[in-house]
Design a protein around this nucleic acid. Structure first.
Length: 768
DNA sequence: CAGTGAGCGAGCTTCCGCTTGACTT
């Protein structure tokens, strides 16, 4: 007989709690939800008042069986699932599925895993909150209806295996809309003027002071006129202003902010962040990593305070509580923080150590005093001109929390390092060293990163901490969205410099549009988005989730009947699905670009069976249409008639080499040159349309020498063992497996014995 | 490795939100 059975959601949590409670309590976990809607026929009896059909999924049968038998032997069962909508529902499903006795079941909740919080929870048990459970059922049923009615519609109208849903479809929409903003963006050119003035430095020697002109010029002529005006001007300090500035530390991490900072500071993908955090959590080093709360337990704040005093002194200590600002936060857990704040570092993999350190610093910083800065602004008047120069500088008076942590931003524009300004006095005449007018362009909106998309979704109240990473993966798996690098372009900008009595001109190269690991829509992504926008505007509205959430809240408060709410949504929704099924055409993103000058037949693009294609002529024509696949980086939306025509210029013969033809084409793996029926990939900088014989031969010979150099060493006794030169340097190849060569050894000097030893000692790859 | 681009009409795909492994490379 068990005295007390406590059921929580997470096994790591169960372990900790059992330690706190001791022998009279057995703590087990449900591993999340134990029941879900059946997958057949929606899993909802739509006509019978939206009655959900719940089943225990195959992978949950074992745990349900185990819990059931434990519960039977227990005097009291404590349902200690999270205190939010989902947690309440899990408790209810447990109650139902385990066949619990109402008199021997208690519902308890706590927001932090501390001994006090848990003991306190045991003293304040309650019953299952049916209204809250109903709100969850409404949420679940609505998501199923949307997902399982829209997805099959897409299979019919666009392509099999596609999907749509309340969350993912809006995530894709964000990406599609941003891309369109970028495509329709016209950069504005302007000239920014900066001046450098000679002043006396702090050590008495000469120094320069940089100042920006208060005005930008749209045209080069205006900038030039201004520079020539300055030739004879005097520059006088007309005002010095000093302002104190305070900076507060950011709140401790939530899932979303952790993903953002790990992306910016450590270059982690959201998936990577979550799996590293999971390992830290499982080994007891951090608190739960899926949370929307910025709250810290009293105990944690106390430990942080002690650590701060000890390491930095009382001056650096300022404890505070943060409150959440994000929409729909349910705050069932604490913020993400180290379990033991006294440990500033931990053991583990490099990734674990780095992420832990980030979490530790952020948590500690959140309880430190504000940073104090002094901002200085110096105004400089120009005789004979209405504009003025402004120099700004920031001096750190007291570092406060900045001693341990500085938050990063997504801003691509580099903040110029502003330091201390030299000491100048009002009415000082400044000597001009030079004045520059440099051409700039306004920046296009940035594409989303995984983490900045999560941030946006959180702002809109779409998705939950446990779903951010999976959603980002889903939209990429469906091929609605791709994560890729954009090389950008290099362009020339004009730089005008006034020095002495002359103005010189220079062309400066500047990179534009370079982006790494950014998200962009695919053609399918855009087509699906437009199809959904056209037929289901309400669901695609960024406020859809917020408005249904409001209704879920009413259900949770007992003021609204949940099947009624669902009916109100479903009736018009289902009608729209029916209409779209009957009336809307198949969406292939077809678009006529113009006419083929040679044949006069129309040129169009669309999604074909194997992806986007260009087409000359129509299927109904007597003469069959000609087809060509679009190249990587081209899209239905942006391809021009010229680009499409170019596609039909391949394959083409560009000359001869060793008595055989050189043919340029584009295949599944990109552009290639074919020679003697062998294929050689072109490099990124080669252009399939303009590449010439000479360069093609170069590519071929390069590849040949590379292949010759591939073999470093071979052994007669063991012909299957090779020492090869690969992309990442020399390695050993044996039995289809590759082995790294220790840096201390020279690959060409290795003996067979040494090779065997390396193979023996190679770590098994399944190890974490 | 380097192509295809109609529809014979099987049987499958799909949601969001809770949780972890069990699998590969």
């Amino acid at each position: 007989m068990i005295e007390n059975l406590v059921i929580v959601e997470s096994p790591a949590k169960a372990k900790t709690i059992e330690r706190f409670l001791g022998g009279a309590y057995t703590v087990k976990s449900s591993f999340g939800h134990i029941r879900d809607l059946a997958k057949k026929n929606l899993g909802i009896d739509v006509d019978g008042g939206f009655v959900p059909q719940y089943i225990v999924p195959a992978d949950k049968k074992k745990i349900v069986k185990e819990l059931k038998s434990l519960a039977k032997d227990s005097q009291m069962v404590w349902l200690a699932t999270d205190e939010d909508r989902e947690g309440e529902a899990i408790a209810w499903h447990l109650f139902e599925e385990l066949g619990l006795d109402k008199d021997k079941t208690r519902r308890i909740v706590f927001h932090e895993i501390t001994k006090d919080a848990i003991l306190n929870a045991l003293d304040n048990s309650r019953h299952i909150d049916t209204s809250l459970v109903n709100a969850q059922q409404a949420r679940r049923v609505l998501d199923r209806l949307v997902g399982f009615e829209l997805s099959p519609l897409l299979w019919k109208k666009v392509k099999p295996s596609l999907s749509a849903g309340r969350v993912q479809s809006v995530a894709v929409k964000l990406i599609v809309e941003r891309e369109r903003e970028i495509q329709s963006f016209t950069p504005k050119k302007y000239f920014r003027v900066t001046g450098k003035f000679l002043v006396e430095g702090s050590n008495g020697g000469p120094a320069t002071m940089k100042a920006d002109l208060s005005k930008r010029f749209d045209k080069r002529e205006e900038a030039e006129t201004f520079l020539s005006q300055c030739m004879n001007s005097e520059f006088t300090v007309t005002g010095i202003e000093k302002k104190p500035l305070k900076k507060n530390p950011p709140p401790p991490f939530t899932t979303s902010t952790l993903q953002q900072e790990a992306s910016r500071k450590l270059g982690f993908s959201v998936n990577q962040t979550m799996s590293v955090a999971q390992r830290l959590y499982e080994s007891g080093k951090i608190t739960y990593m899926r949370t929307d709360s910025v709250n810290l337990s009293k105990l944690a704040i106390g430990t942080a305070a002690g650590k701060i005093k000890e390491s930095f002194g009382e001056k650096y200590l300022l404890t505070r509580n943060f409150t959440t600002k994000s929409k729909g936060a349910q705050e069932a857990h604490e913020a993400i923080r180290p379990t033991y704040l006294e440990n500033s570092t931990v053991e583990g993999s490099r990734a674990e150590q780095r992420l832990y350190e980030l979490i530790w610093k952020r948590t500690i910083a959140s309880q430190m005093s504000e940073a104090q800065l002094e901002k200085t602004t110096i105004n400089i008047a120009i005789s004979g001109a209405a504009e003025r120069f402004v120099a700004t500088g920031e001096v750190l008076k007291f570092d406060g929390f900045l001693k341990v942590y500085m938050e990063s931003t997504d801003d691509d524009q580099e903040e110029e390092a502003k330091g201390l300004l030299p000491a100048v006095n009002e009415k000082d005449r400044l000597q001009r060293e030079l004045i520059e007018a440099s051409e700039k362009t306004s920046l296009q909106p940035p594409r989303y990163t995984e983490a900045s998309l999560v941030k946006k979704m959180e702002e809109l109240g779409i998705g939950r901490p446990s779903t951010y990473a999976p959603t980002i993966s889903t939209v990429q798996q469906r091929e609605y969205v791709v994560k890729e690098d954009r090389i950008g372009i290099e362009r020339e900008m004009t730089l005008l410099t006034l020095r002495g009595d002359s103005i010189s001109e220079k062309q400066v190269k500047e990179k534009y549009g370079f982006e790494k690991n950014k998200l962009g829509p695919t053609d399918i992504g855009s087509i699906v988005n437009d199809f959904l926008e056209q037929n289901f505007q309400n669901i695609m509205d960024f406020n859809f989730t917020a408005s249904v959430e409001k209704q879920f809240d009413e259900i949770a408060e007992g003021g609204l009947d949940w099947p009624k709410m669902i009916e109100g949504f479903y009736t018009p929704f289902h009608t729209r699905v029916d209409t779209a099924t009957q009336t809307s055409e198949r969406s292939k993103g077809e678009k006529v670009l113009g006419e083929d000058p040679q044949s006069g037949r129309p040129i169009s693009v669309k999604i074909g069976r194997f992806g986007p294609i260009a087409q000359i002529g129509e299927a109904s024509d007597e003469e069959k249409p000609r087809f060509a696949s679009l190249l990587k980086g081209q899209s239905l939306e942006t391809i021009t008639l010229e680009d499409a025509l170019d596609l039909f210029r391949l394959p083409r013969t560009i000359g001869q080499f060793e008595d055989e033809e050189l043919v340029i084409g584009v295949g599944k793996y990109g552009p290639y040159v074919r020679h003697k029926s062998k294929f050689y990939s072109l490099s990124n900088s080669d252009d399939a349309y303009s590449i010439e014989q000479e360069r093609a031969i170069e590519i071929i010979t390069e590849k040949r020498t590379q292949e010759e150099n591939r073999n470093i060493k071979q052994f007669e006794e063991e012909p299957g063992l090779l020492i090869l030169n690969g992309r990442y340097g020399p390695y050993i190849s044996f039995n289809k497996k590759n082995y790294r060569i220790p840096k201390s050894k020279k690959p060409e000097d290795l003996s067979l014995e040494e090779c065997r030893e390396i193979i023996e000692k190679a770590p098994s790859r399944t190890k974490k």
